[in-house]
């Protein structure tokens, strides 16, 4: 859900009879739980869908550095500053692991970054929302990382080997991220002043629905989702994950003494989960189309970092070439 609404190019999922022998053998391997590795035969649609999905996930990690990075220089204690910096640095690392996984599919990192910058590839809608207060840093860790983990834990079992291994590494490293966010809010809500608690409530009010949007609109009837699930590059439906997230998060909000901003939120004994209000999907589509509160700032920051750094990347490459030439000449 760092990757939202990834298209597969499938009109419908092929039946066994319609598959070529190669496709059928490939599907057998997936169903047997085998991992697909870079040099293995794979349908072109599988390869291209994975590039889109992993690329979008990677972009989300690096754009996701920005809203939290926004508070590194304003963190309230030296320890909070170090923890937040380490956390945002991890996001850069996760972006790097994911770009590397995508590169095994025959696309370069620079090519993916170019597509992010020209708008032809997306990143998660959530990072187009602003972090206005320190409590937002708590809310991002608690809700945004919490929602991400919901999706990333099952993806450790995804069929593509390099993606699965990247997810395993990411999940291992991310285990502290959600906790650090919740820890910020515990301090503010349970040990803080009324002003701090009000700040935390305000953060939950603003981040609740955007967090629910992270899972994407209902995809129970989506061909793309069905195809991705058949390929095991998507493990659960968006609705399943969203329900799981709400069920997990509501008691955590209660522990903090915060109110989830949904008057219709009620426990449903029959389904063993909460009934809750869907987010405003019109807002979601507006954000995806570029009209979220921070889309322009986020993209401008990424493009500036890339363009302003061109001389640096070129300078180092030129030096390496010169040094290699000198090495050859010296032999």
């Amino acid at each position: 859900m760092y990757a939202q609404m990834v298209k597969t190019e499938a009109k419908r999922v092929k039946s066994r009879e319609e598959m070529t022998p190669e496709e059928a053998a490939f599907q057998d391997r997936i169903e047997a739980g085998e991992k697909i590795e870079p040099k293995d035969w794979m349908p072109e649609g599988y390869r291209r869908t994975l590039i889109r999905q992993i690329g979008q996930h990677a972009h989300s990690e690096i754009v996701g550095q920005l809203p939290e990075g926004n508070w590194i220089t304003r963190a309230p204690t030296l320890e909070r500053k170090a923890i937040l910096l380490a956390k945002v640095q991890d996001e850069a690392g996760h972006g790097l692991y994911l770009y590397s996984a995508a590169e095994t599919l025959g696309v370069s990192r620079d090519a993916l970054i170019a597509k992010l910058h020209d708008g032809s590839m997306k990143y998660s809608s959530i990072f187009n929302y602003p972090t206005l207060t320190w409590a937002d840093i708590g809310a991002v860790g608690w809700l945004v990382d919490g929602a991400a983990i919901m999706n990333q834990v099952p993806l450790q079992r995804t069929s593509y080997g390099p993606y699965s291994r990247a997810m395993i590494r990411i999940c291992k490293e991310e285990s502290f991220h959600q906790r650090q966010g919740y820890d910020i809010l515990i301090k503010m809500c349970l040990k803080g002043t009324p002003a701090q608690k009000a700040m935390a409530q305000d953060a939950l009010n603003r981040f609740w629905y955007p967090s629910l949007m992270m899972f994407g609109p209902s995809d129970k009837d989506s061909v793309h989702s069905a195809q991705s699930m058949a390929w095991k590059i998507k493990i659960n439906t968006n609705d399943e994950l969203r329900q799981k997230f709400v069920d997990q998060t509501v008691p955590q909000a209660e522990y903090l003494g915060l109110t989830v901003p949904d008057p219709d939120l009620t426990w449903n004994e029959d389904k063993g989960g909460y009934d809750f209000t869907e987010p405003d999907w019109a807002e979601f589509y507006a954000v995806l189309a570029g009209n979220g509160p921070c889309n322009r700032e986020r993209m401008a920051a990424r493009v500036a970092a890339w363009e302003d750094g061109a001389w640096f990347r070129e300078g180092l490459m030129a030096h390496a070439r010169k040094a290699a030439k000198r090495g050859v000449a010296a032999e």
Binding site: I62, L66, I72, K81, A92, G93, L96, A305, W306
Partner: peptide
């Protein structure tokens, strides 16, 4: 730490954050 998220390439972004983390740790 102001560079975090804005460095010319991911590898440098990560390396610089390590430097900043060391410095903040020494400050403590």
């Amino acid at each position: 730490s102001e560079w975090c998220g804005h460095a010319p390439v991911l590898e440098e972004d990560i390396a610089l954050a390590n430097t900043a983390l060391d410095l903040i740790g020494q400050t403590q």
